[in-house]
Amino acid sequence: MKLLKNLPSRLLLFSLLSAVAAGVLGAAEKQPQSVQVSIGTILASNQSDEFDAKLKGLESQLRVLKYRSYRLLKNESQNVPWQGNKAFEIPGGRFLTVAPQEFRDNRISLRVRLTQGQKPLLDTTVRIPNRGNFLLGGPPHEGGALVLSISAATQ
């Protein structure tokens, strides 16, 4: 009987707590603190048949390309705040500047600019699935081509 008497107030309290929890969870989904951006710089060439063991996780994606050899030159990760940007140094005097734009539907919108010295080579905006990646390739390097694996994950 006591339980029944207190039922409306208990229900109200629980519902309020649930609503607050839902709000917090919703806010957490909408506004992650920052984005961890990782750039793997790979040299693709036909000078040998070597496949770098460190690239095992990317093998299926790299096999889309028709090169015979893949070697990881560099791997760098940085936390980038929303609406901020960070530059990653790429071999050959190039820079890759990454700027997270927004997070929606579990996808990270990322503006990516590749420059060589003062000259812009590429300016693109992509939407990467959270913890996903894409490849950017083509710039020539040491008789082959550079392939950049650009991945992003919310923090």
Binding site: D123, T124, V126, F134
Partner: peptide, 17 residues
């Protein structure tokens, strides 16, 4: 489809892409 990275815009400054 959602596992793909989608490209909203590309500007290659005169290069082919």
């Amino acid at each position: 489809r959602n596992n793909f990275t989608s490209v909203d815009s590309i500007d290659a400054y005169g290069q082919n892409v």
